[in-house]
Design a protein around this nucleic acid. Structure first.
Lengths: 198, 198, 198, 198
DNA sequence: AATGAATGAGGTTTCATTCAT
DNA sequence: GATGAATGAAACCTCATTCAT
């Protein structure tokens, strides 16, 4: 296959993944049919099978894409300020993305779906990368004594679990109301690393 | 209908609800078909409709039962010790029930399912009762100065969200291993009310 | 079986038939479940099977009852006046019963349902009796030269077919409005025997 | 979608509608399951959903098709002769179609089914068009004094109701026997507009 | 590459019927 | 006589998947 063709295929796959990621992020895996995905792309169901062997496969890939994009955006946050300031910014941004863009996405990560074996490794890597964005800051804070934790893992898990519920808590809020809710959530979660509110 | 017969019917309904609650608790609402429920009870699908008008109705009732049983068990915990000690016991027991008995149950509460209007009030009341078990202790601790929070609501929400993930974190652990995990989780969550680990 | 018991059974059967006839007359055969019939009688579905071997059997018997009651009421109309006056009264009363009491009953007679063989004879007899109420007047009118017809049978059939639609035409009308509609219908149908409107 | 493909789809839809119209016409709406329709087309139930969103939708479309075809054929009758002659031809042809082709079709129109809101307008239009074929002739006859009626509406309704029963009356008749029956019916119905038999 | 068409398994629901008590 | 319970067939509908073109 020529390079040009391969690149085109790659672009098409990206388009599909983006559409699928959005839908899965909005309504969850079961809540989206292949028809829905195809509709959003203005193609037919059958075409999807040209690129993905099954819904599971598409789902896995879409979730990986979604997760990586998400991580990209978190990594793009300014790396300035104290660990507390940076962690706070991270928590807020993560929650905001969840609330505003992918209200159902985090269920995808939390629910114990069995993904196809071939992709499990990549899903895992994506999660590890995502996790590390938070982990490095927490570990740094712990090392400098700025943070106190029972354990880094439990703290990180609790943060993520809590943020996954942000869409439910903030549904309906907008503007200043939403900002307040995100502030409160971030401040509360900072306590998990021992940062008491003023 | 005679008392005896009515009691028997009540018992049968309880059996069904128990089976359904277990299944829903294991695999979530969408993940369980009426066939599944019927199979576990060794009856046919149709029989379930003798007791419940629809899957939604059965689902609501099962979840209500499950939630109330859960709350019952939490309320039965000894009411002794400091707010910290009591909250810790609560967090551990709640997590243990989630891990050991209903690994998917908390998704039922966290996912934003629209229950039939007639039952929404009862589901809400069940949730309120459940919430209150935690809330009274947190508020007491805040009042006596034993706890510090950004807000009671965010703190409670974060706790619940985190505990709902306990099954995923602890899956596979047993014995002392599990106890350690539960301890760590409880200690971490206590930080949400300002109780730093020793 | 003692006479007393037999009479009681007879009364019970009559109660069931009355309830069933009402329901079938309101909603048609398919539109009524045995549950509906049982509910109206405050008994359980199973009990009906003590008196009737099947829904078909109950249906047949109920329709027979309904038809006979209907005929009874038509026969009770005063036998005075000219053939035209008597036929007109008959058409109006028949239509009124259809509209006000059994809006779906006539579908039962018109739809080509295959009733159980054992009862076909009785259904036929019931229909014959019902038919005769109209037929004797029409034949009398024809004999005296008061009526003109292409054939008695087609005329009678057309009358019945038209009256069976009365509920659809008059649905929603009450009071004087309904009376007018019934008048118009009767006057129109009298034309089938050659009685032109004034 | 290319024109060719679109035309093919259109043809397929016509095939389905024809099969469905025949079945509905023979056994009524409730009397036909999607399985029945699918069987006649040698496809599976599911395929029908590729073309129609629900049984109601298929039913509506089939009935509309059937009604329009029917009207087409009536409109194709020669427009010559007196109002009486033309009405007579219309009544005979309408009855013949009912008897020979769609013995249960008229129940579809007479029974008060609630069609999906989106299609109600089209069904209504189809009925209006069908009704008008008869209405214009009756009104013409009334205007010229050839016909006498109590009211045009009741007369038309009675005609249609009576013709809807033609299949029941004529079932089993063929050849000359059938022709006689149709003649008798038409002559009888002409009396509804004041045309006495010779 | 993509499409329209078809499939078939599985889901929820209804209901006439049966039966032990 | 009557009941509560259960059954099983059949209905409507959804959707992941396959495939010829």
């Amino acid at each position: 296959m020529s390079d040009r063709v391969e690149r085109k295929r790659g672009r098409r796959i990206q388009e599909i993944l983006t559409a699928a990621a959005e839908l899965f992020g909005e309504r969850g895996y079961e809540g989206v049919s292949l028809e829905d995905v195809a509709d959003r792309l203005d193609v037919t169901k059958g075409s999807l099978y040209y690129y993905f062997a099954s819904k599971d496969e598409l789902g896995t890939a879409a979730i990986e894409t979604l997760g990586n994009d998400w991580t990209d955006r978190l990594e793009a946050l300014p790396a300035e300020g104290s660990a507390t300031e940076r962690l706070r910014a991270l928590l807020r941004e993560h929650s905001r993305i969840a609330v505003c863009e992918y209200p159902a996405a985090l269920r995808l990560f939390l629910a114990p779906r069995e993904w196809p074996a071939e992709h499990r490794a990549r899903i895992k890597e994506m999660r590890r990368r995502h996790d590390r964005v938070f982990r490095v800051i927490v570990e740094e804070g712990v090392a400098t004594g700025e943070f106190t934790v029972t354990g880094v893992d439990p703290a990180l898990r609790c943060m993520h679990a809590a943020m996954s519920q942000a869409p439910a808590w903030c549904s309906g809020r907008t503007g200043a109301d939403l900002e307040t809710a995100l502030d409160e959530l971030a401040d509360t979660l900072l306590m998990l690393v021992g940062r008491l509110p003023r």
